[in-house]
């Protein structure tokens, strides 16, 4: 599987530092970033904002049949994380005992490899979460 360089490069602030946006008018936070506030529409004032790096597991699933590029990692857990500001995102869960992965378990962001091309290709890094 080939990483599309412009795509992984464009997503570096999002994947490395949880960079999203906030509407200064209605305080709604968006992740991934949106440049237009769905609530305030043209009255919205959207600026960049870093999301909190802690949250809890909202929902999760154990993946046994992994997509291309992730076969060696299976079985692994994928979860919808609800960050402390209420924003939700999907992430792999790492370094966590199976019995600790539950609805509502507190999690913290980690920095890991997401995908990599063949041995001579690019590496895409980004967030994963662990139960704390």
């Amino acid at each position: 599987m080939k990483n599309a360089i412009p795509l992984i490069w464009r997503r570096i602030p999002e994947r490395y530092a949880l960079m999203g946006t906030v509407c200064e008018n209605c305080k709604t936070e968006y992740f991934p970033k949106r440049m237009f506030c769905a609530k305030c529409r043209r009255k919205g004032r959207v600026v960049e904002k870093q999301m909190p790096d802690e949250g809890k597991i909202f929902s999760f699933s154990e993946v046994h049949v992994a997509p291309t590029g992730h076969e060696s990692e299976a079985p692994y857990f994928l979860a919808i994380i609800e960050l402390k500001n209420g924003v939700r995102l999907m992430s792999q869960i790492v370094d966590s005992e199976k019995e600790k992965i539950k609805f509502g378990s507190p999690v913290k962001m980690m920095f890991r490899k997401i995908t990599e091309d063949d041995h001579d290709g690019t590496i895409a890094y980004g967030y994963k979460f662990k139960v704390v």
Binding site: F111, K113, Y125
Partner: peptide
């Protein structure tokens, strides 16, 4: 280090 860890991910965690 796990399969998704390398010296860059370790450096980032320590740096944070």
């Amino acid at each position: 280090g796990a399969i998704d860890e390398d010296s860059a991910t370790i450096a980032v965690e320590a740096a944070r």
